[in-house]
Nucleic acid binder design. Structure first.
Lengths: 127, 127
DNA sequence: GCCTAGCTTGGACTTTGTCTAAGTCAATAC
DNA sequence: GTATTGACTTAGACAAAGTCCAAGCTAGGC
């Protein structure tokens, strides 16, 4: 009885994230999950998202200080480009490793594990 | 009667941010402000912080999806290094302009206004 | 088919932030 | 100096996002 139990709820949350809708908030994940499994609770969605993040299957992105968003594209390094007007988010792939831009004398003894880059601007529609 | 009125409350909020304590949350700013001006309200602290951000005097940093932090060091471009253990934040100055790392074919027609980089790692104390 | 550790549920609770109506006051005009 | 007035402040209600908990349910091992 060790290990991770595959329940209907977890399957549904995973399926929602696998869809073509990326960067959903927890509430949006819950709304879509409810349409497939009406009795699923918010707490379970939060629990499952947290587990997926811990397992490294999903990335948490805190882009605006309000709701966190969940990004299923965790297996490929990428950064985010966000429209300051409408909030649209795109995955982008900058050149080079952002971590390399931080010189040793700016690391203050930290062991770096990574860097997140958020590009901001206006999308064509908002301009 | 046009323009920006200098009130005791606004002065206190500005003074709190000018101290050596950087990257405070709104609640921390409020707590420190209360110790100088006991009747100041939370709403006024939020209002004033919002105005300072609009004026470009202070930077809002959303590092962890919880409370936003306010960074008085707005006049010098810099990025942040955060300890995954204790949450400590340091200002850092990476080499080069992060915006330059995003090639044109990755900008999707956006007009870029800037980039925020968050380096993550463990500080010497947490290791 | 039973058993049980682990999962789910609903609701209370917390944290962070916003809004509003009413009262107050800084800066200008006189 | 005083009156005026529109911007500012206040307390508290409200809202959004997320966490916690006790009670009940269930997948998977036996």
């Amino acid at each position: 009885m060790r290990g991770w139990r595959l329940t209907a709820q977890r399957r549904v949350v995973a399926e929602v994230l696998d869809g073509d809708h990326v960067h959903l908030t927890a509430d949006e994940v819950h709304a879509r999950a409810v349409s497939r499994l009406p009795e699923i609770s918010r707490a379970t969605v939060y629990n499952t998202l947290g587990e997926l993040v811990t397992l490294g299957e999903v990335l948490e992105v805190a882009t605006d200080g309000r709701a966190k968003r969940y990004d299923p594209n965790a297996h490929q390094a990428h950064q985010h480009l966000i429209c300051s007007g409408c909030g649209a988010i795109r995955d982008v792939h900058p050149l080079g490793d952002p971590v390399a831009a931080l010189p040793a004398d700016q690391r203050f003894g930290f062991t770096l594990s990574g860097a997140e880059v958020t590009y901001r601007g206006l999308c064509p529609d908002c301009r």
